[in-house]
Design a protein around this nucleic acid. Structure first.
Lengths: 200, 200
DNA sequence: AAAACAGTCTATCGATTGATAGATATGTAT
DNA sequence: ATACATATCTATCAATCGATAGACTGTTTT
């Protein structure tokens, strides 16, 4: 075959992605990744310089995919902020939940300062900016409170929503219907709160 | 000395607590714990049967302390739900923030099913039940919406608040004033939401 | 005084880890 | 056909891990 490298490369990333997200960086050995690919462990080092490089590539593809997905959703529902937040929440809840806490943990604990900076940039582009843009539009359209009123701003609102989504009570694989319910709940609370004195 | 064991025991838990919460279970070796105590690594095994037993004792003391602190705060501010939520949020934010995500990660990834069950019981007693009791009182006093309205209930509301508190953007050591601001923000959002159409 | 125990130490075990050396086979370019 | 590059392999390294064996010391119990 002409370029087997590309194929094996992708196979490694795919297997490593699942393992890293399921079990965490430290709990996944290079031998286990190789085994999942049907190759031997030293072969990994022909395609990647070290374990961390594999992990970085896993993160990069993961975050690029998320950026594309969220951009698509936001463009489609941008006129209705509640529906837009729901669709985004639902999408992330269905596709990512258990990985997210894991991911943040590993980024913070296993990567050095330099690599953290790189990943943080990717993460801002894929999660923070798109979601913050929803809230920003809501503020501009006067559908959300003025930031000065409550101390909110688009970015911290985005963090807020992401905190809920990546919360630890979503360990289990969410069924679609349950995830829908959960997403509706999160969006309702973020927009209207739990207090009695609100219309809808 | 008559009972040096008790002293060393506590010294180990204290050092292990800091290390486990800062770096995570897997990243902390028994040698490092011993070094932080000024003893040798095998000595740990005279006081604890294995590494996991040290971690379990760390969790137990941590959660018992939290239970006492939260009970005290809730008793003191139970008449004003917003102030009560603020005080609880602020206390946790000041005392615990980076540890929490770490803790949940380790409990889920490093402990077997049996130990997870034990810790989960401790965690419910220390965090979930006290905080849920605040929301329950709010519902009974008709200050919060009826659960059927929005899909909320005291327990999932407690989860909601804890998700915000343990969110990843609180890595750094929070300054007191900043933590106050953060806590007010969280409580406002949970009670009143970000939407425009609200009183207060 | 003798026996038992508590608490710490040194030395070491077997397993696993990330990573490298170097051989081999296959395909490409000259 | 020869030379080179790619992709994989076997074998192995040094480091680190959690844990144990067994000696030594001081205190408590009998």
């Amino acid at each position: 075959m002409v370029l087997n490298a590309n194929y094996t490369h992708k196979k490694i990333i795919k297997a490593a992605h699942k393992l890293f997200m399921d079990l965490g960086y430290r709990a996944v050995s290079t031998r286990r990744i190789a085994e999942a690919c049907g190759i031997t462990q030293p072969t990994l080092y022909h395609h990647f310089s070290n374990k961390k490089a594999i992990y970085m590539e896993v993160l990069r593809t993961e975050l690029v995919d998320m950026q594309n997905a969220l951009s698509r959703i936001i463009k489609r529902f941008e006129d209705d902020i509640e529906e837009c937040l729901f669709q985004v929440t639902y999408y992330i809840l269905i596709n990512k939940p258990p990985s997210m806490g894991q991911m943040f943990h590993d980024i913070q604990k296993e990567l050095d300062q330099e690599h953290q900076g790189i990943v943080r940039k990717w993460w801002m582009e894929s999660y923070q900016d798109p979601i913050a843009s929803i809230f920003e539009k809501g503020i501009n359209d006067q559908k959300l409170r003025n930031p000065s009123e409550i101390g909110s701003d688009p970015v911290s609102s985005a963090y807020l929503l992401l905190s809920l989504i990546s919360s630890r009570n979503t360990d289990y694989k969410l069924k679609e219907s349950l995830a829908k319910e959960q997403a509706r709940f999160y969006v309702k609370v973020i927009l209207y709160g739990l207090s009695q004195s609100n219309g809808q």
